[in-house]
Design a protein around this nucleic acid. Sequence first.
DNA 1: ATTTCATCCTGGAGGC
DNA 2: TGCCTCCAGGATGAAA
Length: 283
Amino acid sequence: MPELPEVENIAMGLRQSILGRPIDKVACFSPVIIKGSRSEQWQSFLATFAGRSITSVTRRAKRLILATTDQRALVFQLGMTGKFLLKQRSDDRHKHTHLVFSFPGDQELHYVDTRRFGRLWLFDCLDPQHPDAAMEAEGMGSLGPEALRLTSNRFHALLDSQRSIKTLLLDQTRLTGLGNIYADESLFASGIHPARSSRRIGSEEATTLLRQIKGVLRRAIRAGGTTFSDFENAYGDIGRFRKRLKVYGRQGEPCRSCGGPIERIVLAGRGTHICPRCQPQDP
DNA sequence: ATTTCATCCTGGAGGC
DNA sequence: TGCCTCCAGGATGAAA
């Protein structure tokens, strides 16, 4: 499930593998994944990539932006299982390959998304450094600030809501980048119970939580992300952060801090992993 | 206005 | 073995 660290690693891989390389052709086998005002003309839009190259690969929130020098852009929201894989022309195409970029020399880049929760938007003009207004105009929804760029004052102000702190951390209109794994990990690292009311998090706790969020995200980026079910980067590498997870997916196993059993509860419809001793409900 | 909830989709797990 | 049911999970849009 690509969250910020996984998308960041995908972006780094694509910069190494396809940046500046002329494209022979972009083919789409599942136009249903294409959204936005240009989706009806997807064939003519994708045809314009022939002979051109991707000159910019950037990340905004969990979205991946591939852009040309004249700011024509593809924006991918990878959903649960979206990924890119480098292939040879002779390789078998995956059952759920939706898009194929062909490069000279028989190399291909496949966009694969098993569960098809991922979406692709087409842009005639998008500044990859400042994409927010254009993306919003295309109906992609508004995005909060990047988790890694937040200051603690601004973060504390964002917490003014009666929802639970975990629900808030997952709300991409408040802050962007966290998904289920890193929300649970950050809350554990901060000793905060995920069901606690967001607005009852004090400024000191908020500072701690933000520091832990950034630390968890940075370590996960360095480790190549987390592979839980099927994340892999363009080269087929899996993420090494999984073995460093402290609560996510560890229900029944001993807490690495106090030794007590990790529990799994359901919060906001999401599996939520806690150490009840290290994360008291009523601090 | 704010918050909750069903929906999308497939493969893997578990029951029998 | 194989069939069946259940479930995870990000984002969205409708409902409360």
